[in-house]
Design a protein around this nucleic acid. Structure first.
Length: 873
RNA sequence: GGGCGGUUAGCUCAGUGGGAGAGCGCUUCCUUGACACGGAAGAGGUCAUAAGUUCAAUCCUUAUACCGCCCACCA
């Protein structure tokens, strides 16, 4: 066997992945005979590239799927891609702009054609990146949210919800993104803290009120003076004594002063903010809109879809046509000129911006389509409260619940072209007809309205509408496919916390509504990835790390280990350090070299299925087998509990610090020759299977290089702990041996001895030969039976009479004795404390006594050793 | 403004009501029959601060400070 000294992931990983995929190891068909384990991959945007965040959310999906596949379950990871309406359209519009073409010049049909072309050419690039990272998704089943089947499912759900009265069209205040030229839903807003100004504006009293004695007018504070043009009232709190007498009076709207508005009372006003009086602009502010509805006020729009001032509903003087922020400046200027600006204070406040474009969102009135949220939210909330839907970590459940409790209707129509066009048609008189196809719409129009002249609604659906039905649409719904019957609902959804509302809650709502059942049992929220300094990764900061680069540099396995080992169940962030990749690469190299060593053993490795007769097993054999079994049990528990960090850490420690550092070294003794090959083969094979979900490539490469049964580790069985023998007593002995060996090494290091210098250890006579020789091997020492003492290993620990200078050893023993003395004092003080004896749990007291006894024992041994040093050699 | 999380070794983070841990980094030694992408030994911490509960607090409670996340219609 002539393996290179360094493991080379670049030579291994692409080759293995190609083989896995070619042989269909990731592909599954529904099999009702086995328990299903299905994960629906959150479809990445068609525009997306792999980033570190995929490490923390997608990697665990791969780990779980691989683990459950090895358990023999009907496991499948269902991938796909999202058409990402606004994001994709933005990319295309930008590209067209570079060629000097506007979207409208191209026309809808050609634009959509281009979008398809684009998504086929550049889209889905992330799939090959995912493959490079070793993601074992069932690519044959990959779906696209715009493909034919999914589009049909979208239309079916829309029509169904409409007919059930859960989708309606209406004029409501919506969020308008002037850059994207489309509405965005509440969940897609980002409130950004910005420094602004709070302007105090005087609204002069109306002429008749001046005659009536009310002359001062009223002062209000605003951050958005441009909306003054659309004011229809001034609101004050009903219980505010300052304004009680003013209610019902009228004031002029500045700066034009060409109309008057009433002063009204409304509970929504906070008397402590600003002047306690607020201007009401129902067409451009959510709170004002509600006040407007309550008081039956007019709702004139003054800002149009182009983000410019419009005078369509109300006179706006010379401001008509001005851009909104220019208008703001001009109005402030005018107010000042007319002496209506009382004050201007710096003011930090949250501004609603569009998550996608970053532009300041303009609330405005518009005729749009909405999903009625309350009836859908109630069962989704109930599913969580009853415990049928479990959210991990638990605290995110409260976030989920809170959102559903305060949910508002969901605006689903978008004014862009790339996406699912609404299945809505209008007759010439404007009657809406909702149907799954144009033919169906025509039939309805003909039958019910006697017309065949229809115009289709140009709007498209919010991207999250199609992703909201993802868990069943990809299984073939509405057809009753075997996939749908076996694989819905799925077992677990893993996702980032930022889309609990956008995606998770909506899948639950739509899943319950359409399928009658929640789409998944567990929701696992994974941490966000930041740089080592805790900053978000961003291009402008220049701290973005590309996982593909890491995979090229260190290997995909190393990247996976670097992320997984850092994951903590309760943590909401993961501070990533590239040095973790280096560590992991070293770990892989360690595995590689341990394998090289085993394969070079003269006796050769047997197949791993059977162990030697128990009587033949050495103490190290028994220890490593015991540890293997404990590791299997622990790994399984951690993976079931979604604790990926500790799972990765567990196998890491087992492989490196137990198997390589101790067991492998222990097998270098001649006396182990009889059993070691069999035990090595057995344990290493199992260790590779435990490692496989986490580091699939190296585990496969090693597994294939070792004697093995089967064609791939991908479908090999997860080790069964019941088949692994346990030897608790010998395992404990080995731990003692480790302690003795460490003690000897320590003394040796302090003496500055060269490894080739042997030291003599004086071991009590009744320690078995098997153990003394083991100590001799691992400590690089000669072991001599003590003529003076009988005793056990514990005694040996305290009596390492090495060839050390007496002063050095004596110093060491004194230090040890000091430590023990303080421990003994602490214990004695505790046990003398009557309150402790009386009130502490009995087992705690007992344990404390045991500890004290042990310390006294050890103290005696150390003292004896110290005494012995004084005797002549 | 409301809710939530964090504060433990230089860095990134585990952890537990009763003896402070890991990895990296650092210091020293070592090419010993796989591995220097390695092995061995070691230094390094008033567990953010204050009060409280308890026989006992790094751990539980409360408050404070700082960092972060989410939500939100104080214009």
């Amino acid at each position: 066997m002539d393996l290179p000294k360094h493991y080379d992931p670049q030579a291994v990983e692409p080759r293995l992945y190609e083989r896995w995929e070619r042989n269909g190891y990731f592909h599954e068909d529904p099999d009702p005979a086995r328990p299903p384990f299905i994960i629906c991959m959150p479809p990445p945007n068609v525009t997306a590239r792999a980033h570190l965040g995929h490490g923390s959310t997608y990697l665990p999906m791969d780990v779980l799927t691989r683990y459950h596949r090895m358990l023999g379950e009907n496991a499948d990871w269902l991938p796909g891609v999202d058409h990402a309406a606004i994001a994709t359209e933005a990319v295309l519009v930008k590209e067209l702009a570079r060629q000097g073409i506007a979207r409208e010049d191209l026309g809808r049909e050609r634009f959509v054609e281009r979008a398809w072309e684009w998504s086929k050419t550049y889209g889905g690039a992330i799939d090959s990146q995912f493959r490079r990272l070793g993601f074992g998704a069932d690519w044959e089943r990959s779906r696209f949210t715009m493909d034919e089947g999914l589009s049909a499912a979208v239309r079916r759900v829309f029509v169904q919800l409409y007919r059930d009265g859960l989708i309606y069209r209406g004029t409501r205040l919506i969020n308008w993104d002037p850059t994207a030229k489309s509405t965005v839903s509440d969940a897609e807003l980002e409130h950004v803290e910005r420094d602004g100004t709070l302007w105090f504006v005087r609204y002069p009293a109306s002429s008749e009120d001046v005659q009536a004695g009310f002359t001062s007018g009223i002062i209000v504070a605003t951050t958005r003076p441009e909306t003054i043009l659309g004011d229809v009232a001034i609101a004050v709190h009903p219980n505010d004594p300052r304004f009680a007498s003013l209610i019902g009076h009228r004031v002029f709207v500045p700066p034009l002063l060409d109309r008057t508005i009433p002063i009204i009372a409304d509970d929504a006003v906070d008397p402590d903010f600003g002047t306690g009086a607020v201007k009401v602009t129902p067409a451009h502010d959510p709170t004002d809109y509600e006040i407007g509805v309550r008081h039956g006020l007019e709702m004139p729009s003054v800002i149009g879809l182009d983000a410019r001032i419009t005078g369509a509903d109300v006179s706006v003087g010379g401001f008509a046509g001005m851009e909104r922020f220019d208008a703001r400046a001009k109005i402030v200027e005018d107010l000042r000129a007319k002496d209506l600006l009382v004050d201007a204070q710096p003011h930090r406040h949250a501004v609603a911006t569009s998550e996608r474009s970053g532009d300041v969102v303009e609330p405005l009135l518009s005729l749009q389509w909405f999903v009625k949220a309350a009836p859908l939210a109630a069962p989704a909330l109930e599913a969580y409260r009853s415990g049928r839907l479990r959210i991990v970590p638990e605290r995110y459940g409260r976030t989920y619940a809170q959102w559903l409790e305060n949910i508002r209707d969901w605006n689903v129509s978008r004014q862009i072209w790339w996406g699912h066009q609404l299945p809505v048609w209008y007759t010439p008189d404007g009657t809406e007809i909702v149907a799954e196809s144009e033919a169906e719409a025509r039939a309805i129009a003909q039958r019910e309205h006697g017309t065949s002249e229809l115009t289709r609604d140009p709007d498209t659906l919010d991207t999250w509408f199609s992703s909201g039905i993802w868990p069943f649409s990809i299984l073939g719904w509405p057809a009753s496919t075997p996939e749908l019957r076996c694989w819905y609902p799925s077992q677990v959804l893993l996702t980032a916390g930022e889309i609990i509302f956008l995606w998770v809650a909506r899948m639950v709502m739509l899943g319950i509504r359409v399928m009658g059942e929640i789409p998944f049992r567990d929701v696992v929220i994974t941490p966000l990835v930041f740089d080592a300094a805790g900053r978000k990764m961003s291009k402008s900061l220049g701290n973005v790390i590309d996982p593909i680069d890491l995979a090229e540099k260190y290997g995909a396995d190393a990247f996976r280990l670097s992320i997984l080992r850092q994951m903590r169940l309760e943590s909401q962030e993961l501070r990533y350090q590239e040095s973790r990749c280096e560590e992991a690469r070293n770990f892989n190299n360690k595995i590689w070299n341990a394998t090289r060593y085993m394969l070079a053993l003269p006796e050769g490795l047997p197949l791993p299925m059977t162990l030697p007769a128990q009587s033949a097993l050495t103490i190290p054999d028994r220890w490593i087998l015991t540890r293997l079994r404990e590791t299997v049990v622990r790994m399984s528990g951690l993976l079931e509990g979604y604790d990926f960090g500790n799972a990765a850490e567990t196998i890491w420690r087992f492989v490196w610090y137990e198997f390589c550092d101790w067991y492998l070294e222990a097998t270098k003794a001649e006396s182990n020759g009889a059993t070691r090959a069999a035990v090595l083969s057995y344990v290493w094979n199992a260790a590779m299977r435990l490692l496989h979900p986490i580091a699939p490539f190296i585990s496969e490469e090693v597994w294939l290089a070792l004697p093995h049964d089967g064609e791939t580790i991908v479908t090999a069985n997860w080790p069964d702990p019941r088949e692994i023998p346990v030897f608790d007593e010998e395992a404990r002995s080995f731990v003692l041996v480790q302690r003795v060996v460490e003690r000897v090494r320590n003394v040796r290091a302090e003496m500055g001895l060269h490894p080739r210098d042997r030291v003599v250890i004086d071991v009590p006579t009744n320690v078995p030969e098997a153990i003394t020789s083991l100590i001799a091997l691992l400590a690089g020492a000669s072991v001599e039976p003590s003529a003076r003492r009988a005793g056990d290993l514990e005694d040996a620990l305290a009596a390492i009479a090495a060839q050390a200078p007496r002063e050095l050893l004596a110093g060491r023993y004194r230090k040890e004795a000091d430590r023990l003395r303080s421990e003994i004092e602490r214990g004695e003080k505790k046990l003398e404390n009557q309150a402790f004896i009386a009130k502490a749990a009995p087992d705690v007291v007992a344990k404390e006594r045991e500890k004290l006894a042990a310390y006294r024992d050890e103290f005696a041994r150390v003292s004896a050793a110290l005494e012995a040093l004084k005797e002549p050699a």
